[in-house]
Nucleic acid binder design. Structure first.
Length: 154
DNA sequence: GCCAACGTTGGC
DNA sequence: GCCAACGTTGGC
């Protein structure tokens, strides 16, 4: 099993949106970066656990945990001219972007802030705290995942 | 809104 | 394939 961190803007889709979905499950739409896409397509598996990260907002940080319940399949928003995720170069015969489904596991009582994460000396490999932090889907080491979750629950 | 750190595009 | 110009991300 692998661990991940997925970024989302809570004004668009935050952990609270996931919490009120039927089955507390939603598809993860709109990944439009090749490196992130490749993780989603090739490595994100059912049962993997995901740190749900809120970006570009007042309260930046890890808001909770989700679980992958469906592996990569075509992201339908790439075919929809009305969608902001529309990609004219993609077609149903030749899809370029994929999505997975995630289900809520735990919503932390408060967000583990980016500042707190950066202040944890044992978190050294997480891409968030390194260069190249712009990736929207990033792997997390099991050991760092456990430490982040323990810190968030404290 | 600013701006650094990326990623993408397209001419050559 | 190089690289300048441009677009996007995301913290602050």
């Amino acid at each position: 099993m692998n661990y991940w961190l997925f970024k989302s803007e809570p004004d668009v889709f935050g952990i609270q949106h996931l919490a009120v979905r039927p089955q507390q499950t939603a598809f993860w739409e709109g990944v439009r970066n090749y490196q992130a896409r490749n993780f989603l397509r090739d490595e994100v598996k059912v049962g993997d656990l995901v740190l749900f990260y809120h970006s570009s907002c007042k309260d930046v940080g890890i808001a909770g945990i989700a679980e992958v319940v469906r592996e990569a399949y075509p992201d339908h928003t790439q075919f929809d001219p009305e969608s902001k995720y529309f990609d004219p170069k993609a077609s149903p015969d030749n899809p370029r972007w994929v999505m997975v489904d995630v289900k809520l596991v735990e919503k932390f009582s408060r967000v583990l802030s980016l500042a707190s994460i950066k202040a944890m000396p044992e978190i050294t490999e997480l891409a968030l705290v390194k260069k190249g932090h712009r990736l929207s889907i990033m792997p997390v080491l099991a050991e760092e995942y456990e430490r982040l979750v323990a810190r968030a629950r404290r």
